[in-house]
């Protein structure tokens, strides 16, 4: 067995308490539930979840949606889909039948995507990816009704369990940021386009939260240029955090030692949090910033949470 394969097997065989997986589960469940309740509050259950004949917005034929084939195409089908999703997300949040709830919620959300593809955004795809992960994870072993039913109390027992779902989630977040960065091919993202991308995005009527007429002033415009530079640097360099979570084979050199010593992965985590807070304040992207921040728990080792941010006992993220 080659050393690379041994490294790969060992990387995915790490174990830890399921605290972080549980916190991601609760965060994702709450964000999805909040989004679903917004749909209800705005009176959009039938328009967004219903067949075109009752909701008017969907153009998808019933033959493409198994929910419509099995449940029907009337208003009741839309309300049943809403109810099923609400139950799934609630069970996921409280951790009752956790794996089944995650898997069922993912399938139901996928049906919603087929019913109205344009209403389904990148964050919905990302959260379904996470639900798939949670369905195979130990997220129900801590802070859950499942744990209580196992006789371990609501908090559950703090025993070492497979940690691969958390590391796979870290990889998913890194892939998302990195590929979003390197696909920013429009010139506004680069010096020859005047670093004007954020300015242009904030002037987009549909996604901006405010008119931002004052952005034309020199100082605010300069700040958008700084924001553009930081965004590109932050996203394109994001894979560096993997040095912390997936330490490569071999003895660390000076860079890796310095990276660990000064815990430099926190630069990307902190920048990311700030990035999402600013997005939430300036743009109307719905649950995107909150959904992303719910996943940020994955960057913490369970021992880091217990020691409130201090270095964990393990040096491998």
């Amino acid at each position: 067995m080659s050393s690379l394969w041994r490294w790969w097997v060992a990387t995915w065989d790490r174990r830890e308490a399921a605290d972080v997986q549980a916190l991601v589960r609760i965060g994702v469940g709450l964000v999805m539930l909040a989004d679903l309740l917004t749909t209800w509050r705005l009176g959009l259950v039938v328009p967004l979840m219903g067949h075109g004949s009752v909701g008017e917005l969907s153009g998808t034929g019933a033959e493409w949606v198994w929910w419509f084939r099995w449940v029907g195409t009337d208003e009741r089908a839309a309300w049943l889909l809403f109810g099923a999703m609400a139950v799934g997300e609630l069970l996921l949040t409280i951790g009752l039948f956790t794996r089944t709830a995650a898997f069922a919620t993912m399938l139901l959300s996928a049906q919603w995507m087929v019913i109205l593809p344009d209403g389904d955004r990148g964050i919905d795809t990302l959260l379904r990816n996470v639900l798939m992960l949670l369905a195979f994870s130990s997220a129900g072993r801590r802070f859950s009704v499942d744990a209580a039913l196992r006789g371990e109390g609501l908090a559950g027992e703090r025993v070492p369990l497979p940690a691969w779902p958390r590391y796979l989630l870290v990889l998913q977040i890194v892939v998302m940021y990195f590929t979003a960065g390197v696909q920013k091919y429009a010139q506004q993202w680069w010096p020859w386009g005047g670093w004007s991308a954020l300015y242009v995005v904030l002037k987009d009527w549909s996604v901006s939260a405010w008119p931002f007429t004052w952005l034309d002033q020199p100082v605010p415009y300069f700040l958008t240029q700084v924001g553009t530079v930081v965004t590109i640097l932050f996203q394109c360099s994001y894979p560096l955090v993997l040095l912390h979570y997936f330490p490569p084979l071999g003895e660390p050199g000076r860079f890796r030692r310095a990276f660990e010593r000064y815990r430099l992965h926190w630069v990307w985590i902190a920048t990311g949090m700030l990035f999402h807070v600013l997005l939430a304040a300036t743009m109307e992207l719905g649950i995107f910033p909150w959904g992303m921040m719910a996943l940020y728990w994955a960057f913490l080792h369970p021992d880091e949470i217990r020691s409130r941010g201090r270095t964990p006992r393990t040096s491998t993220g």
Partner: peptide, 23 residues
């Protein structure tokens, strides 16, 4: 991917809209 609704593909604001539409 279709059944599970999972996928990848994260071209987020790759091409900022210089001709945005106002409803």
């Amino acid at each position: 991917f279709r059944i599970t609704g999972t996928n990848q593909g994260w071209a987020l604001f790759a091409n900022p809209d210089t001709h945005p539409v106002r409803l």
